[in-house]
Design a binder for these strands. Structure first.
Length: 486
RNA sequence: GACCCCAUCGUCUAGUGGCCCAGGACGACGCCCUUUCACGGCGUAAACACGGGUUCGACUCCCGUUGGGGUCGCCA
């Protein structure tokens, strides 16, 4: 059932690039919004002046755009809403749901150390809650700085999670956390509550590393008397060593996968199926199809390990789904970047590019493979693979190649069948195995020992090019021979 | 350490009390196809963490144990 009132968001902090964990959360929120016809927002969480880096915002948005996660409305920047948070902090303080804390960070650090030495939970000891009004007045007059803490009411806080079902936590396990720093700025949990409320967020879908924050945020909602959204805590994406993905541990960001030739559809599809299942045996879907079949009821509760091999397998399938033209559009810039050919050269030989792509398509796993496996279709200055060269470029093969070149040159037509007949005919006459002709020829025209069927390569390369390359190879082999004799 | 969450092949997962001596996918291995490498086709190995219950019957429900993850900042 469509529910256009659905409003969700993804809230990255610009303290690193977009990694697969955040991308996965973005995708889930996007799918949830689009499936129900709701709205998907972006909010940049940059309240920490120290750690936030403005230059990181664009790369994050680029990655989101690459994944085709189009968002609604204006992007909200927390750094531009600092005054609003201050008002809310003041409200909490005045409502006596919060209180001033004059403890210095050093003092708090010391308290924590002492607590952990005694094997006690490192929770704030409420020293400043015990201050008398006179003491507070005195400190204020002395100009002492203070942070604002939320006083956690006794009892148990619980909520119905979209994934985890009923979750609860005793107030004994939640400390009076700080909602406003001594410089007056809001901390994360307050800012999130205020923004989610102002933005009209109906469902907060995020990683399960946030459940402890959720209890705190619910308490803030209550202190402020605001409506509480629904929560869904998704399983985390783990590295192969089972740790949470993080940039600091050297995990790749989405942009790197893009550079490695991954298709956004493949990334979208793979990430979507981590911790969520369509409950069918099919697993390759386009983003559009996923929007259609998505339901929040199919989330798993257990964390999932990110497997790059499987991602690449998905990529291969998605490459197979693309049209030749669409692939050419994606591959052309890669050939240009690799310095193989200019944009102009490729645009004027679009048909040729298309044919090369069709030929290579089924053996390619990444977009960049089109370049590494097919550069010789464009690049005439390729090097011969040294190992194959040693094996295939023998003096005898030079003679065979020379003879074959002559025969190719005389061919009236140069298509797959004509080439095959010509080569087979020569092999029969000379009583040599076809492989003795095929392998050196392949190396001569491509510089490689592997690739698509040789006859297809030759036909596509065209007769004059093939003849020229083979002559060059013959010459090369004979020079090699001379060099080794000297 | 405290608290919260989780637990099916190496990995992602299907399974909601009998259809399961557990299905699919990636990976691995083997065979076929083949001039090569891939692709494709066929096939093999590979899992219900453990212990108690509940039940005529548990992968499925309950409890415990073990294991894993997450969180414990005037970071987000």
């Amino acid at each position: 059932m469509p529910d256009s009132s659905v409003k969700v968001r993804i809230a990255p902090s610009p303290s690193g690039y977009l990694h697969v964990g955040t991308a996965r959360m973005a995708i889930s929120n996007y799918l949830f919004a689009r499936h129900y016809g709701g709205q998907f927002f972006i909010r940049i969480e940059d309240t920490d002046k120290e750690r936030s880096d403005k230059s990181l915002i664009d790369p994050i948005l680029d990655a989101l755009r690459w994944l085709q996660l189009d968002w609604d409305g204006e992007i909200v920047h927390q750094s531009q809403r600092l005054d609003i948070y201050k008002d809310y902090a003041k409200r909490i303080l005045e409502s006596s749901a919060g209180y001033r804390c004059f403890c210095s960070p050093q003092q708090l650090q010391k308290d924590r150390e002492e607590a952990s030495a005694k094997k006690l939970p490192p929770r704030y000891n409420r020293r400043c809650l015990k201050l008398t009004p006179q003491e507070i007045e005195a400190k204020l007059e002395a100009g002492e700085k203070f942070a604002i803490r939320l006083r956690i009411p006794e009892g148990v806080t619980s909520f119905e999670d979209m994934v985890l079902k009923q979750v609860s936590r005793s107030s004994d396990d939640i400390e009076d956390f700080i909602i406003a720093r001594s410089d007056g700025t809001a901390t994360y949990n307050l800012a999130v509550v205020v923004d989610d409320h102002d933005m009209g967020i109906t469902h907060v879908i995020r990683g399960n590393d946030h459940v402890t924050n959720t209890f705190k945020q619910i308490l803030i909602y209550r202190a402020l008397g605001l409506d509480i959204p629904k929560f869904g805590h998704l399983p985390l994406i783990l590295r192969p060593d089972k740790r949470k993905v993080s940039k600091r541990l050297g995990d790749k960001d989405v942009g790197e996968y893009r550079n490695e030739g991954l298709l956004p559809e493949a990334m979208f599809n793979y990430l979507c199926l981590l911790g969520w299942s369509p409950k069918t045996e099919r697993e390759i879907y386009t983003p559009k199809e996923l929007v259609e079949i998505f339901t929040e009821k199919h989330f798993n509760a257990s964390n999932a390990v990110f497997d790059e091999e499987k991602l690449i397998a998905f990529n291969k399938k998605h490459i197979g789904l693309k049209s030749g033209h669409d692939l050419a559009v994606l591959v052309a810039p890669l050939l240009v970047d690799a310095g193989v050919r200019t944009k102009y050269w490729l645009e004027t030989r679009w048909e040729y590019l298309r044919n090369v792509i069709d030929l290579l398509k089924e053996r390619v796993r990444r977009l960049t493979d089109f370049v590494s496996l097919g550069h010789y279709f464009f690049d005439f200055d390729y090097k011969y693979e040294s190992k194959a060269e040693a094996k295939q470029f023998t003096p005898e093969s030079a003679d065979l190649l020379e003879e074959l070149t002559g025969r190719f040159e005389k061919l009236p037509g140069f298509d797959h069948d004509a080439i095959e007949q010509c080569l087979s005919g020569m092999a029969n006459e000379k009583e040599v195995k076809k492989a003795r002709l095929i392998h050196p020829t392949r190396l001569a025209v491509s510089g490689m020992s592997v690739g698509p069927g040789l006859y297809d390569i030759l036909a596509l390369l065209t007769q004059p090019v093939v003849v020229e390359r083979m002559r060059k190879a013959v010459e090369h082999i004979r020079n090699m021979k001379q060099e080794s004799q000297e």
